[in-house]
């Protein structure tokens, strides 16, 4: 089965054709970005542009995009952001969805989370998001960018904060931004200083301790299982809309299994950051995690 669901933020393709005794189902989220150049006015080679595109904010010097610089920037953005997010998570399939036979054995797949980032000029094709991009003058090292306005340095690793030991916390802004485009919020939302119903852009939302600050959705570059939420959301939709497997249905729970089963029904897919192999029904029902299979 290869089935696509279209979400506002991305497209999701579930592929179970690849499943066998060792290979899980694959869920690929595809994000289509349309990039649009911001150039100096008229035909000028150099000019200025306001931080955040806000006429009341300071201006920075910008230079005209050349075809080669534009192509190179887009290629670097897409390649590096895709590599960062692709293939980093596996979803444990607690309820045995999408069972299949491999030989005489029934297997129940886990889900490998893949990511495809497609970037093209905004005037070509359709996109989930359109992003304006300024090319900074070599004398500039910072620009006030936001979720739909980037600059040519956003793919560089820059210092975003300092940890409790005085060490710099580095981040490449575009991978953080792709997290937002996938629907992820800042790391510390819901914690003191960053109420979920308040300004989730406040500095406290980027983390107030080392662990949070080093998260990619804080000021750092670390991926965590919670960053698999977009794939989990998509899988819940697939599980809800696809017909049940013809080869396996998880047995009704015993009384002692009931609390765990209720949890599994609330969270049918949970993320890990290490490959977990497909399971047999006995392994799944025993809640065994198979991280090696010979």
């Amino acid at each position: 089965m290869q089935k696509t669901l279209n979400f506002p933020r991305y497209d999701a393709l579930l592929n179970t054709d690849v499943c066998d005794a060792r290979n899980n189902a694959e869920l690929t989220l595809t994000l289509r970005l349309g990039f649009r150049q911001i150039n100096p006015a008229g035909t000028a080679a150099e000019g200025t542009y306001h931080d955040y595109g806000d006429a009341t904010a300071p201006t920075r010097k910008i230079i005209r995009w050349t075809p080669s610089a534009w192509a190179s920037w887009k290629h670097n953005f897409v390649r590096s952001a895709q590599a960062f997010w692709n293939g980093k998570f596996w979803l444990i399939n607690h309820l045995g969805y999408f069972g299949y036979r491999a030989g005489r054995q029934i297997f129940l797949p886990n889900i490998w989370c893949r990511f495809v980032l497609q970037g093209s000029d905004a005037n070509i094709g359709s996109h989930h998001h359109t992003i304006d991009v300024v090319r900074l003058h070599p004398s500039e090292n910072w620009f006030g960018s936001h979720s739909t306005l980037y600059d040519s340095l956003d793919t560089n690793s820059v210092r975003k904060g300092t940890d409790s030991h005085g060490q710099p916390i580095m981040q490449r802004a575009h991978v953080h931004e792709v997290g937002h485009l996938l629907g992820l919020g800042h790391v510390a939302i819901g914690q003191p200083g960053c109420p979920a119903n308040g300004n989730t852009n406040a500095s406290a939302c980027y983390g107030t301790n080392d662990h949070d600050q080093y998260s990619v959705m804080g000021e750092g570059m670390q991926l965590r299982p919670e960053h698999a939420q977009p794939w989990i959301d998509a899988m819940r939709q697939f599980a809800a809309t696809e017909p049940p497997s013809t080869v396996y249905t998880i047995p009704a729970p015993t009384i002692t299994q009931l609390p765990q089963r209720m949890l599994d029904m609330m969270f049918p897919f949970t993320a890990v950051m290490r490959r977990h192999y497909p399971r047999t029904p006995a392994e799944l029902e025993a809640r065994q995690m198979i991280t090696s299979r010979h």
Binding site: G53, S147, T148, E177, G185, N199, N201, S203
Partner: peptide, 13 residues
């Protein structure tokens, strides 16, 4: 007193 001014649409960077 620290505070934050949002810029741009939606969630910031």
């Amino acid at each position: 007193t620290p505070s934050t001014q949002n810029v741009g649409p939606g969630t910031g960077k």
